[in-house]
Design a protein around this nucleic acid. Structure first.
Length: 110
DNA sequence: CCCGTGACGACAT
DNA sequence: TATGTCGCCACGG
């Protein structure tokens, strides 16, 4: 685990996000132990586009459940993918965010 | 090696 | 509740 880079850690956790669920940058960061570096998670996601297998970055949103990454995906592609998985999105805001929220700290229960 | 940047978050006002 | 400011750390130039 310590052999892999911070980025890969983020990728692995992100890939564990089940369809129809979403998580926040801070949640991933906290799970990795770098609680205060939620930004790094987002930064990693930027590079995630070059990672293989592809990372479901569209399932990662901010603490408010707002599709901040939407701008990076381009257009409403991100929202469409989420809705396709059963996640309701209105005006870039995930509905019932609390319900679809997937917390690695709890789900992975390390 | 120093500086700016960034898909965030928590706290202060 | 809303807005503003600071902290956080990795990466590129």
């Amino acid at each position: 685990m310590e052999d892999i880079n911070f980025f890969e850690k983020v990728y692995q956790v992100a890939r564990l996000i089940p369809p129809g669920r979403v998580t926040s940058y801070g949640a991933i960061a906290a799970y990795l132990g770098t609680k205060g570096s939620s930004r790094m998670v987002g930064w990693a996601m930027q590079a995630a586009g070059n990672a293989k297998p592809a990372v479901p970055a569209h399932r990662v949103v901010n603490r408010q459940g707002l599709l901040t990454a939407k701008a990076h995906f381009g257009g409403n592609r991100m929202a469409a993918m989420l809705e396709s998985e059963g996640v309701k999105v209105v005006d870039d805001q995930i509905q019932d965010f609390k319900t679809v929220f997937w917390d690695p700290m709890v789900e992975l229960a390390l």
